[in-house]
């Protein structure tokens, strides 16, 4: 008395779901405010750093061992350019302007 037969396949779902990538370029729903992942990681570390002289580039590197130096440097340059961070005692120490 079982309803035999391949009447219900259920695998037609997704056949038309491709190519729907329109969410790029919207306002975005991620945790970043227009920053890349690396940039926001760097910014968060600098924000979280308690010392008044700011976080050094060396420490940034050791905190982000999976990123190479040039990526970190780019993130720092970007954040500095945007006004999120600024250099302190020298060009390798940074503090955040966002910290309230």
């Amino acid at each position: 008395s079982k309803p035999s037969g391949p009447l219900i396949m259920g695998n037609s779902v997704g056949a038309s779901g491709m190519g729907d990538m329109g969410s790029l370029g919207g306002s975005g729903s991620g945790p970043t405010n227009g920053l890349t992942l690396h940039q926001s990681q760097v910014l968060n570390l600098i924000k979280a750093y308690p010392k008044p002289e700011g976080l050094s580039f060396q420490e940034l590197r050791s905190q982000l061992p999976n990123l190479n130096a040039s990526v970190i440097k780019q993130a720092v340059d970007f954040l500095s350019n945007e006004g999120h961070i600024y250099s302190t005692v020298d060009d390798e120490h940074f503090k955040s302007t966002d910290a309230e």
């Binding site: 350019n81 945007e82 006004g83 961070i85 600024y86 250099s87 005692v89 302007t97």
Partner: peptide
């Protein structure tokens, strides 16, 4: 340390400009 303060002010100005 005057340099630091100027850097900070410059950064804050940049930040403000971005949000304006």
């Amino acid at each position: 340390l005057e340099r630091i303060r100027r850097n900070k002010e410059a950064a804050l100005l940049r930040l403000a400009a971005r949000h304006a």
